[in-house]
Write a protein that binds this DNA or RNA. Structure first.
Length: 566
RNA sequence: CGGGACGUGGCGCAGCCUGGUAGCGCACGCGCUUUGGGAGCGCGGGGUCGUCAGUUCGAAUCUGACCGUCCCGACCA
């Protein structure tokens, strides 16, 4: 293919609003263009990379017996009412001309359960695995980072249907294997981590996380490799301070002290001997204030706390705190609360050992020596944010925390959707049973962006061969070189390689710079060495000092053999 | 939702404070020269300055509303 016939809208300058490397480079190299906030077009170059990525995913899905299908994006809202997920704020809603209520699908569990309910009759029909590549629509509060968080995106979503939990486990394990093969083939560095089940509901879940500074997620990894989890549910061993002997609880005056740092400094104690009060208002219909306690040097994790409460929440305002506790913020604690004063007290398990400095619910006073069980109580739930350097629970290996991009996830959903939509089968005894479901997603566009985050240098993209838009990029310099390049293109194309001959009437420097930016892995330059010695230059993008000279007649064979191209 | 920044040819920007007929670089078209790492010269095309309203003899510039885009926050008690 001649470059003069291709759309290659490369930009010399970085787009002004791009922050993430993938955003900057994919726009500059002409792969994608923005249509609106969180809305992107894949230009021809980008679409080649996207389709190659999708093809790898398709092959691995097919390899585990998953069958491809296609479901609509536009759904009757009623379908989503049946699972209650029509209340999710990210769900786009609209009406048709008759006023019928419709939604734009953000995922397809409901649809799958609908079809399972209608088509699956007998245990003989199970197990099944269905998947599609289909557009998802999500009304994100804040699209971000180019392709990293968008409002519309294609998802590969697969769904397994099994007769029992054992069958679901087997389907889930097969998907996990396929996912590892997919991301390995795509040349992505990734971690498989335990994850929260989130809005899907269900029992077990894992995420596939590509480490990148642009990632919105944080994952906790043990140095010995035995533990990997999203910080949303990661656990660790906290350090243990020296508590000293148990003492009776007593009030101490702490004028103007409202933060843990001030408190620890004022009384000259380790912050680990203080307890921090997190006061929040759940956003559900029950009302009331929840008081959560973590150790002074610890942080509560938002999502862990929301899970413990069973609802999203917002921080309580100073007025709400004063009204509830009769004291200023900064002096609040769980000791001496009256029945019904707060909706609930949640205590991090770390605080069940030892005695702590805590708020006295009296402005400018704190309590010394408060012990769980003796002086205060509450529901014990892990709500603590794990910290870098803490030890893994099982092996004691130190943890580090890395930012990462979630490129895929797998969920054991159980029977939630089957129940809601009546997806059942008859077992051998003729008894009606619920179908056990799993769901398995990959975002191909986000995966492409994650690869771009990991695979680039100062000059541009450096694609792994599996996802590069083309296999070989030839830069001919001069008339004779162009003929040789076309001949080489024909020969390589016959071997199944896709080739671009950059015949554009631009200076060599500009064409080299574009080739670097676009990031095709194999490069052939044909120029003055052709006339002088009859050789061409073969290089590999992104490999320092990599350069071979090959006779023009043998270049195609040399390139194929030396580079191990399949 | 809260806060901040920015909207001027395709891209990156200046002009705005101090109102007076819109400019630079790149890209683009034509011609000549040039051709192994972002070439040179010459000529040329392209912008109702985000939208609407207001102030004014006159608005890219001042005022207001709206729209759009990006970033931070919505943990740090």
């Amino acid at each position: 293919m001649r470059a003069s016939r291709l759309l290659l809208p490369t930009l010399r300058d970085d787009p002004a609003d791009a922050v993430a490397a993938s955003h900057r480079l994919l726009v500059r190299a002409g792969y994608v263009r923005q249509v609106g906030s969180g809305l992107w077009s894949f230009m021809p170059l980008g679409y080649r990379t996207l389709t190659r990525t999708m093809q790898v995913i398709r092959e691995e899905m097919d390899a585990i017996g998953c069958q491809e299908l296609l479901m609509p994006v536009l759904h009757p809202e009623d379908l989503w009412r049946q699972t209650g997920r029509n209340a999710i704020p990210e769900l786009f809603k609209l009406q048709d001309r008759k006023g019928s209520e419709l939604v734009l699908a953000m995922t397809h569990e409901e649809t799958i359960a609908l079809h399972a309910a209608a088509e699956i009759r007998s245990y003989r029909d199970l197990p099944q695995c269905w998947y599609q590549f289909q557009t998802k629509e999500r009304d994100e509060p804040r699209p971000q980072g180019g392709l990293l968080r968008t409002r519309e995106f294609i998802m590969k979503d697969a769904y397994s249907l099994d007769r029992d939990p054992e069958g679901l486990q087997a389907s889930y394990d097969a998907q996990a294997g396929a996912y590892r093969r997919i991301f390995e083939r795509l040349g992505l560095r990734f971690y498989e981590v335990e994850s929260d089940v989130g809005m899907m509901g269900g029992s077990a879940a894992m995420e596939y996380m590509a480490p990148s500074p642009a990632g919105e997620d944080r994952i906790a990894l043990s140095e010995d490799g035995s533990y990997a989890a999203n910080v949303e549910l990661a656990v660790s061993r906290a350090s243990v301070p020296d508590f000293g002997p148990s003492e009776p609880i007593r009030e101490i005056e702490t004028p103007g002290i409202t933060t843990i740092e001030q408190l620890a400094a004022y009384v000259g104690r380790d912050p680990r001997l203080t307890a921090k009060s997190v006061i929040v208002v759940p956003e559900d219909d029950r009302g009331g204030i929840v008081l959560a306690l973590v150790r002074g040097d610890h942080r509560a994790h938002d999502l862990k706390l929301a899970r413990a409460i069973g609802a999203p929440f917002r921080p309580a305002t100073p007025e709400e705190i004063r009204a509830t506790f009769g004291a200023e913020p900064g002096s609040i604690g769980a000791v001496g609360l009256k029945e019904g004063q707060v909706r609930e007290v949640i205590v991090d398990p770390v605080l069940t050992e030892g005695a702590y400095l805590t708020g006295a619910n009296r402005t400018d006073w704190h309590l010394h020596g408060a012990e769980f069980g003796r002086d205060f109580t509450g529901r014990v739930v892990d709500i603590r944010h794990v910290e870098e350097g803490e030890l893994s629970v099982e092996t004691g290996s130190p943890l580090r925390i890395e930012p990462a991009i979630e490129v895929g996830n797998i969920f054991q959903l159980g029977t939630r959707y089957a129940e809601a939509l009546g997806a059942t089968y008859l077992d051998e005894s003729g008894t009606e049973q619920l179908i056990w479901m799993g769901s398995y997603g990959i975002g191909p566009a986000r995966t492409v962006a994650a690869i771009a985050e990991q695979c680039h240098d100062d000059a541009g993209l450096v694609w792994p061969p599996t996802v590069a838009p083309y296999d070989v990029w030839i830069t001919p310099i001069g008339e004779a070189a162009l003929a040789a390049a076309d001949a080489m293109d024909a020969e390589l194309a016959e071997q199944g390689l896709s080739v671009v001959v950059d015949d554009r009437d631009l200076s060599p420097g500009v064409r080299f710079a574009d080739a670097d930016l676009i990031g095709v892995p194999l490069r052939i330059t044909i120029g003055k060495r052709l006339e002088k010695d009859g050789v061409v230059t073969i290089r590999r993008r992104g490999v320092e000092g990599d350069q071979d000279l090959a006779p023009v007649d043998a270049a195609a064979a040399v390139l194929r053999d030396a580079r191990g191209i399949a």
